[in-house]
Amino acid sequence: MIEIKNLHKFFGKAHILKGVHLQVKKRDVTVIVGPSGSGKSTLLRCINRLEEIQEGEIWIDGENISSTSTNVYKVRAEVGMVFQQFNLFPHMNALQNVTLGPILTNKKPKKEAEHSAMELLRKVGLSGKEQTYPSQLSGGQQQRVAIARALAMQPKVMLFDEATSALDPELVGEVLNVMKQLAQDGMTMIVVTHEMGFAKEAANRVAFMDDGIVVEEGPPKEIFDHPKTQRAASFFSKIL
């Protein structure tokens, strides 16, 4: 469903992604792990075209989304993204945060968008918080609104960019639970995380990135317990 071929990304002279290859099948939950600076976040940002790429191809559902002729707005609408810092719109309440995309991008009638948004907020455990502004929500609640906001676009794939890294430890669980639920519901997900527990429990693929490439990729058990490369082995020995 998603195929990334020989992806290169430069920031000025800095070569960040150096030929990434990755395949994600429909309903796969792929967790990307690796040391900081290895290009995990940049890779996610390329998949919904928040970053332009310099070389290589990204295919989603048989469409080359990295080609210049592709409608970038359509790509972004079809690829949901959840950010480390939540990035909720602080001047809008939870419901408005979730309905904005469907109303403006997908041209849904307001009533219909609100109806689905309330359903999504219920799904992430935030019934009754529709009228609440982000500043009055905890970090975990904000991140769950952000997940609902991304889901409201009915994306083909959800990208999670260290979605729990900015949370207080006691709030991490509630967000991970929502993510696990999503995985069980069959959502295709690419998750950058340091939560190895989540990787072991919810992922069916793990990709280890280092220095701008995917060094190893496979089922969690295989990658964690029998890494083929020295780089992966030494990384896991530090964090597991």
Binding site: R76, M81, N87, P90, L100, T105, N106
Partner: peptide, 24 residues
Amino acid sequence: GQWDAAKSIGLRYHQIMSRIILPQ
């Protein structure tokens, strides 16, 4: 991050300006 989030739900430049950036 506000630009990123707005772009990620498919908003156009003028929509991001008028709905997200200027009100804040």
